[in-house]
Structures are given as structure tokens and as C-alpha cells.
């Protein structure tokens, strides 16, 4: 890549961006599936917030959330990968992926609280800012990954930069262990990136 002349390099980058864009467009969900997904999420929220199961209430909620979902279908589900049947995927997400993620994050949050308490008592800190790379491209995926990194022990996300071959994150690490990008990425991201790559683009 470094031997390519500069006038060809620009062309090559434009071409690669187009390939990425077309791949993204091809792997999006079809419109009616997006409406159904948004409707399911909004209906759950309505039932939880209103807090009653009378038929009148449920019918009103269903009609209103269906109208909102028809307008707002791209807001929530733009970045979800297409794979398999939608009912199957919803059941998989609700009963396997989501509990897995919640259990992982709950134990990491507990560990990070104990680690901060240890750091406060002994003051054995060695901070540094490192740069790691992820393969996620979409806004939702990168947002959830950055939030998860902030809640894992000893790391804080400073900034996000999007490049063509992936997304780069700058991490403030309170106990610096390695400067190598691959090793640091493996230590910081853990298995959350693998989990997110199954769902988001």
C-alpha cells in the first residue's frame, strides 16, 4: 500500500469506501422488519411505563406505537445486521444474546468498583493514553462498545476516530500494561467486540 503513487491512492480509497458502502446497504434489514422491530421495542416500553394490562390500554398503545414505528423505523434499527428469520432472531436476542451481555457487564462493573476502591486505598496508578482499533463501523455499535469500555475495569474512552479500515478509539488506561496495539486491544475489549459484531454492523 505504501508503494502506490499518490494519485492512484486517492482513487483506491474512494473505491474501497464505495465497496464498504454497498456491502452496508446490501446487509441492511428490509423495511417491514425494521418497522416490526421498532414496534416491539416501543410496545414493551409502553407496557412497562403505563403499568396496566386492560384491553383498552393495550389497544391504544398498539395503534399509537405502530404509527410512530412506521415513521421512525430508521432511527433505531439502521445498524443491525441481517441474518436469518426475524422471529428466530428476536427470540435469540431476547433469551441468549441479551442475558449474556448483561451478565458479562454486571461482573465487569463489580470488578471495576473493587479495582477503583483498591486504587484509592493504595494509590498504585500508572496512567497512559493508548490507541486501539475495532472492526465495527456503525454509530450504534461503536457507541455501545465505547460505553462498555468505560465501564470495564481501569479504562476510560477519550475520543473516537472513524477511518476506512475500522474505527480507532483512544483509551485512558489507569494501569498501563502494554503499548502494543493488538495486545492492548485484546486486553481492553475482551469478548464484548465479538458479541457486538454478531448483532451490529
Amino acid at each position: 500500500m505504501s508503494r502506490v503513487p499518490f494519485y492512484l491512492k486517492e482513487r483506491l480509497e474512494a473505491l474501497r469506501e464505495r465497496v464498504l458502502r454497498e456491502e452496508f446497504e446490501a446487509s441492511k434489514l428490509p423495511p417491514w422488519e425494521r418497522v416490526v422491530l421498532t414496534w416491539a421495542v416501543l410496545m414493551t416500553f409502553w407496557v412497562v411505563v403505563s403499568g396496566s394490562f386492560s384491553a383498552n390500554n393495550l389497544a391504544l398503545g398498539a395503534v399509537v406505537t405502530l404509527i410512530i414505528a412506521a415513521f421512525m423505523r430508521d432511527l433505531l434499527t439502521e445498524d443491525i445486521r441481517r441474518s436469518g428469520n426475524i422471529i428466530e432472531k428476536l427470540i435469540y436476542f431476547a433469551f441468549i444474546y441479551l442475558p449474556q451481555y448483561l451478565v458479562i457487564m454486571a461482573f465487569r462493573l463489580l470488578e471495576s468498583n473493587l479495582k477503583v476502591a483498591k486504587n484509592v486505598i493504595f494509590m498504585d496508578i500508572n496512567p497512559g493514553i493508548v490507541k486501539i482499533k475495532t472492526d465495527l463501523h456503525s454509530d450504534t455499535g461503536v457507541t455501545i462498545l465505547a460505553n462498555s469500555i468505560t465501564l470495564t475495569p481501569g479504562t476510560l474512552t477519550l475520543d473516537v476516530k472513524k477511518k476506512l479500515d475500522g474505527t480507532y478509539l483512544y483509551i485512558h488506561w489507569i494501569d498501563l500494561e502494554t503499548l502494543n496495539r493488538e495486545k492492548a486491544g485484546e486486553k481492553i475489549k475482551g469478548d464484548i467486540e465479538e458479541w457486538l459484531k454478531k448483532v451490529f454492523w
Binding site: P127, T143, N147, L156, T157, H172, L179
Partner: peptide, 25 residues
């Protein structure tokens, strides 16, 4: 976490120097 990310980035852009060993940013 989102608010902490915004505060950290804003502080860096404003010019608060971190006390760190290595600063790749």
C-alpha cells in the same frame, strides 16, 4: 459513561494536560 466521555474530551480540547506516561492522543 456518555457524560464522562464528553467531559474527558472537552477537558482535553480545552487544554488540560493529563499526567500520563505515554500520550498517543
Amino acid at each position: 459513561p456518555m457524560v464522562s466521555h464528553a467531559i474527558a474530551r472537552g477537558a482535553y480540547r480545552y487544554g488540560v494536560k493529563p499526567k500520563v506516561v505515554v500520550d498517543m492522543y
